[in-house]
Design a protein around this nucleic acid. Structure first.
Length: 496
DNA sequence: ATCGGCTCGCGCAA
DNA sequence: TGCGCGAAGCCGAT
């Protein structure tokens, strides 16, 4: 089949055949929840064109995955509304499905796949998604392909795992230029001369009615679903349209002072794109292209040699280079880890020196030890830490510097490093909109030594793990303003 | 305000 | 085989 998607990004998940007599090509959208800059959708559209079949897009939202809540559901549903809106103006057909009770969606994919010529899905290396795709691959009697839309570097461009950002950065500087001209199409469905699907299979629609996204956009409807209602929606909206707005807000008003401005507590010069990247509402290719365009950059400007230096290689402005180091080096480093190692979320994946040092200090006495419930309730003696925890609970994110302190203190105040890890994973996955992502795990494990080096002097509890203290943090940023913003009494501002 | 020491291990030049 | 250096640190000396 003639496809514009780079072969390195496409995996054949089973040995089942293409069905030439199928009614449509099915794109099972599970991670790249967007209609633009999406290699998976592009691949599915290529199949539809080649086979002369209609294209059906299934986007489902289960209710029984770990940490399912009003917060995560609302964000995904807003994304589905944006996708419905866009697909209505194309020749593809959209099938949004919201599971209303446990296992309610069981059999839907299989039923749709039974009539499909070929099924295409997203390759995402984290959470329950790899297991879900592997299980589907075994069951389906039709070819299932998964497509890697995760980053600028295809996951399979290397079979190594990188233990330090600097090594991965050097590798990227050597390798990325080969992939600069392999961008996904901005609108893979434009000019698609594929037949329209006359109608959805009636028996499938009867058993699994497509979601009425209008009615699900209010909180009342969320209340009917068997999900965690104690984690409330955040004040910013999900979906590709909101993501585009965030991108332009960042480029227009924040990128210029990104390098120094990120720590500013009141006027954070951060991108705020992470939740959208996590749910695939925006593509890192799109973000990269937008930055490059602002910088009037072309690939000829990169330095001729891989220096591994954090700045100066791209030939862009200093703030743009800082941002690209986050977007590309750090983000894709985490994806590489999750893809390479099944134990990316386990304590044993920490570097040997870190495990050894933490173990040597396991028996050290702890002045304060809190339970998960105390951490969750922001009930420690330290008001700066409590404010960070309240930001997480309220807004589904934590200030970029304070989130490191947040993790370091959980290590200090837990019975064992393993307990600390469990608390960090639980709270982050439950409350952070961008949790359950390779980069969540990078951040959490960094607090325990991953991607870091040993530091002296050796201290109680931490051993040689980099130590951070609330007192020095107070000297570095406007802790007063931060604590005031996330004080216990302050009401959540609803901005929509 | 700035600097070195604390400490580990990788990639690279030699 | 040795050298340089690294996501954001801390502390004490100057």
């Amino acid at each position: 089949m003639n496809s514009t998607v780079p072969p390195l990004r496409v995996q054949n998940c089973n040995r089942a055949p293409i069905h030439d007599d199928g009614d449509y090509v099915l794109y099972w959208m599970i991670a790249a929840r967007r209609t633009r800059w999406n290699f998976g959708l592009e691949r599915a559209a290529d199949w539809a064109r080649a086979l002369g079949k209609p294209l059906l897009v299934l986007e489902a939202l289960r209710c029984d995955y770990p940490w399912a809540s009003d917060r995560l559901h609302r964000f995904v549903l807003q994304g589905m509304a944006a996708n419905a809106d866009h697909l209505e103006r194309t020749r593809a057909t959209y099938y949004p499905y919201i599971e209303r009770r446990q296992n309610g969606g069981k059999g839907l994919l299989e039923s749709l796949a039974r009539r499909a010529a070929v099924v295409v899905t997203d390759d995402f290396p984290c959470f329950f998604l790899p297991r879900m795709v592997a299980a589907a691959a075994e069951r389906l009697k039709v070819r299932l392909e998964s497509v890697d839309s995760n980053g600028l570097l295809p996951l399979r461009a290397t079979d190594r795992v990188f233990l330090r950002a600097v090594d991965f950065r050097r590798f990227l500087q050597k390798t990325l230029p080969q992939h600069f001209d392999e961008m996904p199409r901005k609108n893979p469905l434009a000019r698609a001369t594929i037949p329209l699907l006359e109608q959805l299979p009636a028996d499938v629609v009867r058993r699994w009615p497509p979601a009425d996204l209008e009615s699900l956009s209010d909180t009342c409807s969320l209340a009917e679903l068997p999900i965690d209602h104690s984690v409330s929606p955040v004040s910013y909206a999900g979906g590709s349209i909101a993501a585009d707005e965030a991108l332009h807000r960042f480029l227009d008003r924040r990128l210029g002072r990104y390098t120094e401005g990120r720590r500013d507590v009141t006027e954070r010069a951060t991108s705020e794109l992470s939740p959208y990247l996590h749910f695939g509402h925006i593509s890192s290719h799109q973000i990269f292209s937008a930055v490059a365009e602002r910088e009037q950059w072309n690939p000829g400007q990169v330095f001729h040699k891989a220096t591994a230096a954090r700045s100066g290689w791209w030939g862009m402005s200093e703030p743009a280079e800082s941002f690209l180091d986050e977007l590309l080096t750090w983000r894709e480093l985490g994806y590489n880890m999750s893809w390479q190692r099944d134990d990316y979320d386990r304590y044993e994946s920490l570097p040997a020196w870190a495990q050894k040092s933490l173990e040597e200090h396991q028996a050290d006495s702890r002045e304060y030890v809190y339970t998960l419930e105390e951490f969750e309730a922001a009930a420690t003696y330290d008001e700066l830490w409590n404010a960070a925890q309240r930001e997480l609970v309220r807004d589904g994110r934590i200030h970029s510097y304070l989130r490191m302190l947040w993790g370091k203190k959980i290590l200090e105040w837990s019975e064992t490093p393993r307990d600390a890890l469990a608390v960090m994973i639980e709270l982050n996955n439950k409350y952070a909109v961008d949790g359950r992502n390779p980069n969540s795990y990078s951040g959490i494990f960094w607090c325990l030594g991953r991607y870091d080096r040993a530091w002296g002097p050796e201290r109680p509890i931490f051993g040689k793990i980099r130590f951070m203290s609330s007192d020095s943090t107070r000297r570095k940023l406007d802790a007063k303003a931060y604590i005031a913003e996330f004080s216990a009494g302050r009401q959540q501002e609803i901005a929509f």
